[in-house]
């Protein structure tokens, strides 16, 4: 059941046109959810792509990537105190 699955702790966005396909992010990715695309980008590189799920938001891919803005890493926001059901109950 998709709805029951715990959300991923993070995800990444890769700019396939800035990426030069060096593969260092693929090498660094702990959950191994990055790979190089079969297709080529405008500059003739196989850009890195994210499988779409399984990212743990560690950010290592960002640090090993030589391009300033090819990767953006998102992290699951910590739920706010007030949003937690038990906290809401306690308030009542």
């Amino acid at each position: 059941m998709l709805e029951d699955r715990k959300p991923d702790r993070g995800f990444v966005e890769i700019d396939g046109e800035e990426c030069k396909g060096c593969g260092l992010c693929v090498e660094a990715c702990v959950p191994r959810v990055l790979r190089l695309a079969e297709s080529l980008n405008r500059y003739g590189y196989h850009p890195a792509v994210y499988d779409g799920h399984g990212c743990n938001g560690c950010g290592l891919c960002f640090f090993v990537c030589p391009e300033p803005g090819a990767i953006r890493v998102f992290k699951l926001a910590a739920p706010e105190r007030g949003a937690r059901p038990e906290a809401a109950l306690a308030a009542v």
Partner: peptide, 19 residues
């Protein structure tokens, strides 16, 4: 390609610039 550095794929300069 003004969004890309001139460094080769896998070059350490880009990483160091970022740090």
């Amino acid at each position: 390609a003004q969004h890309q550095t001139h460094y080769c794929p896998g070059c350490g300069h880009g990483v160091t610039h970022k740090l």
